[in-house]
Every structure is written in C-alpha cells, then in structure tokens.
C-alpha cells in the first residue's frame, strides 16, 4: 500500500534532497525542494522495486514525480491495474 509516509521514506533514502524529507508536505513541489532528474530516476526505480510495479512510458515525466501526493496516486492506480492484470 502506497501511503504518503512510505513514499516519504523512499524519498529520504533515494531522493538525495538537500532538505529533510520528513518536513515535506504531500503537496510540496519536490523539484523546488531540490529533486534532480538523476535522483528522480533512482526514486522511480526504488518505487518500482518496493511496490513491484512498472511505470509505463506515458507516466515517465516530470509531472508524475512532482509531489508526494501525485506519486501516491499514480502508485495506487498502477498497483491496482498491474495486480489485476
């Protein structure tokens, strides 16, 4: 189950943020918080591994990883779809 807290934990491990991930709100702009494009790929890989999902090509963009809330939403959707498949 993807929750804001699980995403925040993965973000703290792989996001290479200059700020403490615990201080980030669900709607905080992660790019403004210093998420680089390189770190965002590492974050995607860690999330794929954690939730046993694969991000389809149309979701591999800046918008998907812009806030904790959008990541939770996308991961929840994908978990449902890909488990059903």
């Amino acid at each position: 189950m993807a929750t804001a807290d699980t995403i925040r934990t993965i973000l703290a491990q792989h996001g290479k943020l200059p700020v403490d991930a615990a201080t980030l709100g669900e709607d905080s702009d992660l790019y403004a918080a210093g998420l680089s494009s390189f770190a965002s790929v590492q974050l995607m890989l860690a999330i794929e591994e954690e939730f046993d999902i694969e991000f389809p090509e149309n979701l591999l963009n800046r918008k998907t990883f812009s806030t904790i809330a959008t990541i939770v939403e996308v991961v929840t959707e994908l978990s449902k779809d890909q488990q059903a498949a």
Partner: peptide, 10 residues
C-alpha cells in the same frame, strides 16, 4: 537559482 534559499536545481 530562483531565490537565496533555493536548491541548486530550482
């Protein structure tokens, strides 16, 4: 950077 406290990539 966008402002004095902004991250290097912001």
């Amino acid at each position: 950077r966008a402002h004095a406290d902004a991250a290097p990539s912001d």
